[in-house]
Design a protein around this nucleic acid. Structure first.
Lengths: 322, 322
DNA sequence: CGCTCGGTTTGACTTTTGTCGAAGGCCGTG
DNA sequence: CACGGCCTTCGACAAAAGTCAAACCGAGCG
């Protein structure tokens, strides 16, 4: 194919332009091609991650609020997307920030676990490209034959594609109809291997789901609204990688959880850096549960959520003191 | 000072422009400033490393020659700057490449050892800025009160400045007039500490010097041309961090070496990643000596030098076989 | 109080870059 | 061998970014 020489050219053009600081016309004459071609090559270079443009997310951790939250919640790092800021869609802002933070956290040779949800997919969608050939992206939970475009495998694959990394999908349904079958499937070598590989991840990216009728679990038919309500009344507080957790961040003892094929919470906790991103203000309780369960070490949230978390932590502390 | 609010603005402008992909005029209207200001802020952002633009150096390792060299010399990675390439100054090309490679090798939290020389200073000079607050750059050898602008401490400081990192200088002369004094100085707590800290570096950056009258050691008056010639006849093959090594890469047993305050070769070898950069074709033997001594794991050279190294390795191998 | 100094900010101008339709080349296919 | 699809390249134009001198602002000082 005619792509090989182009690859070379793209690389060379990017090199001369970005590393040497030549102008496009200078690059063009060096390479004996037209300036327009250079412009095109450079776009490709940016799109394929041959050149990386990243902006420090320092600003968002520098926030006093972020520092306080890190202390109060014992997290390694917190990033806060300023809420008000003019017109821009606030949830998008969080996603853009999360994508930057994510790219900043990825290191060469990493194995990255990715869960699924609208948040994760949004992040994948706006994430810029990078060139990390020795990175592996693994799917943290089984698949959901969803009507949505953000199925678990798609989240994984899209992120792998952006990173030029290897994607490792999980070829099992997220939920099975009987506990029996789930157990049997989990015992399958392929699945077993995938599941045990999760603990070896260096970085995880996920969000937390709410326990309500709007949950994907309901929308995808894994649970009925009634079942969801019942789980809620039994203490369900959030959804992590397709599993239901209670307010302490522990796996809820229920049939549903036993029918799920997903990363065990203990495997998740074994991952060094666990980046949790929460866009919706409504996910306050689920997020508290996830934090209580030690499921996140790095957190990206909006300003309002950050304030609520801090208020809550403060209230809990003073309550304890009294 | 009025810099603080500007810092914020620079950050915000960079964020909106690079992360969100807005145009400069859009950023300007969001921030209620003129587009010209935005342009200025963005330049500052690039200059201070708030935004990072890096191009993959993949191309230069992909070279078959580079692969062969890695095998032949048992190095972790080799980058080859294409020699002929049109008009551009070939030694500059090597420096630009080396700077990119260096930035690619630096990780957060690293401690970096830097030696000195024209090569290192050239690299420092063209290196782009980055924002690595938790990095420390340490000087690998004592200072030379040189007529040059690239004194050891300046190399260290300049690199630290570019990286926004901490610079740790070495407040001792490189060469003393008596072995006695050198020994005493090395025993000083401050110096001792600095020297022992070298083994804890994660990354080293240096070049290798030639043993001839053009050497900095001669130009700076540390050695006379005659002394140099004598050392050469006694087996001196190269200069590493101010110390003379023989063709096997071992420290040459001579008075000069005993009068030097610098990183011990064993400390250097204890560093994980040792990036050696050689610009001049004339440094073939010194480079061979450094490689023989295991003083480099990562190598950046020009195409001609690469070819010579490979030829040499091939010849040595066939000689051995016969 | 008015002055200068260092800096930021601005509008106007220039240069550089992005983009588009058209043209050219290459390859597999009919 | 001609044809059509696909990609690269080109020239020209429009949009965006860079630059510069002049205006502005606030702080410190005589």
């Amino acid at each position: 194919m005619a792509i090989r020489p182009a690859e070379q050219l793209i690389h060379k053009a990017a090199w001369l332009y970005y590393a040497h600081g030549l102008r496009q016309d200078q690059v063009a004459s060096q390479l004996n091609i037209s300036r327009a071609s250079v412009a095109m090559y450079l776009r490709k270079a940016r799109e394929t991650g041959i050149v990386n443009i990243s902006t420090s997310t320092q600003l968002f951790t520098d926030d006093v609020l972020a520092r306080k939250l890190e202390d109060a919640l014992k997290l390694d790092a917190v990033w806060i997307a300023p809420g008000n800021d003019h017109i821009a869609d606030p949830s998008m802002e969080i996603a853009v920030l999360a994508a930057s933070v994510f790219l900043e956290l990825v290191k060469k040779g990493d194995r990255i676990g990715v869960a699924w949800g609208r948040t994760v997919y949004t992040i994948a969608d706006i994430m810029s490209y990078a060139d990390l050939q020795d990175v592996t992206v693994v799917q943290l939970c089984g698949n959901l034959g969803a009507p949505y475009s953000y199925r678990p495998d798609q989240c994984t694959m899209e992120i792998a594609r952006r990173l030029n990394a290897k994607g490792l999908n999980f070829y099992a349904p997220l939920v099975l109809s009987t506990e029996e079958l789930a157990r049997a499937l989990r015992a399958e070598p392929v699945i077993r291997e995938q599941l045990s590989g999760i603990g070896e991840c260096d970085l995880a990216l996920y969000s937390v789901g709410a326990v309500d009728a709007d949950s994907h679990l309901v929308k995808c038919g894994a649970l009925t609204p009634d079942e969801m309500a019942e789980l809620r009344s039994r203490g369900a507080a959030g959804v992590i990688a397709g599993q239901i957790i209670d307010a302490d961040g522990k796996l809820l003892d229920c049939s549903y959880n036993r029918r799920v094929i997903s990363a065990e919470l203990s495997s998740l906790r074994a991952i060094d850096r666990r980046l949790m991103v929460v866009q919706e203000d409504s996910k306050f309780e689920p997020l508290l549960a996830a934090i209580a369960g030690g499921l996140c070490t790095h957190l990206v949230v909006g300003a309002r959520m950050a304030q609520r978390l801090l208020d809550h932590a403060g209230a809990a502390a003073s309550e304890k003191a009294s």
